[in-house]
């Protein structure tokens, strides 16, 4: 059913094939995308935050969502794991199809969704517990079997943090530096063995060196995970992402409302070297935003 819909719909912003992708992958477009967004709209009460987003998120690649403040990129990211459910006024319409299932179908359990689609937040948000307990929390609540010590070690190794914290696993996570805390949060997300990791401006609270380490980490992680990252930092998007979506704010002076729209979605290379929309070009060349 969903497969049919995907084939019949034409995604205007997505080119049929892109030079970066291997011919094999390009031929299997449906298997190749983890998410298919179909006409997604988000309202907060009467405020129309995001309008008519239709896009595909490719598997095991890094997709960056960029754009000026208030363009709804974080709001959209929070639709990917139903984090918007936590805001009572938020209302999502359209479909967010994840591996063939619409996440907003009534039978879907948001808790199950978030276990498969992990999230890393803007500010590092460790639990006020030990490093070990931070990592072990997710596996514990999800009933993941196996040796917890090994699980914790593996997650920390995958997040390139193990060597720095292996001797102080029982210490409070707030004793770590900001960058370490953020990598610990990534380890915590990895520990539940998700399919996708969403990152909401993960480096905005970090210094350049800590940011660079997170970027390296993302590049390593994309071998196993699909990553969607929201970033304010265009250079970062250019460095790490395979595909980049540019959003902007449409201001309606008459109704004094602001709505986020998707302008252009393409390979990072095209967006940053040869964008097809003049608004994208104005943004990436620093003329606004």
């Amino acid at each position: 059913m969903n497969q049919l819909t995907e084939q019949t719909l034409v995604t205007v912003t997505l080119p049929e094939s892109s030079p970066e992708r291997s011919g094999d992958a390009a031929n299997r477009a449906d298997d190749d995308s983890v998410f298919s967004l179909r006409g997604v709209n988000v309202h907060y009460g009467s405020f129309h935050a995001v309008r008519d987003i239709t896009m595909e998120i490719p598997r095991r690649q890094i997709t960056a969502l960029i754009g000026p403040s208030g363009c709804g990129k974080s709001t959209l990211l929070r639709c990917f794991n139903r984090m918007n459910d936590l805001i009572t006024t938020a209302k999502v319409s359209g479909s967010v199809i994840y591996n063939g299932e619409n996440l907003y179908d009534s039978y879907v359990d948001a808790v199950e969704v978030r276990r498969r689609i992990g999230m890393v937040f803007q500010k590092p948000n460790p639990f006020p517990k030990s490093i070990y307990d931070n990592i072990a929390f997710g596996p514990k609540v999800n009933g993941i079997k196996g040796n917890m010590d090994d699980l914790v070690e593996q997650a920390l190794r995958d997040a390139a943090l193990w060597d720095e914290v292996k001797d102080k696993l029982k210490q409070n996570a707030y004793g770590l530096s900001g960058g370490q805390q953020q990598r610990m949060c990534i380890a915590r997300a990895i520990a539940v063995q998700p399919d996708v990791i969403l990152m909401d401006e993960p480096c905005s609270a970090l210094d350049p060196i800590a940011s660079a380490r997170i970027e390296d980490l993302m590049t390593e992680l994309k071998a196993q995970y699909t990553i969607v990252i929201v970033t304010h930092n265009m250079q970062q998007a250019a460095r790490v992402s395979d595909r980049t979506a540019f959003f902007t704010v449409e201001v309606d002076e008459a109704r004094s409302s602001r709505t986020g729209i998707l302008v252009e979605f393409d390979t990072a290379q095209r967006i940053f070297t040869n964008p097809s929309d003049s608004r994208t070009e104005a943004y990436i060349t620093g003329r606004f935003g």
Partner: peptide, 15 residues
Amino acid sequence: VPRSIREAGYGVGAS
């Protein structure tokens, strides 16, 4: 209790 703590919990699939 900060919202971020709750979000972190929900983010790893806690009910």
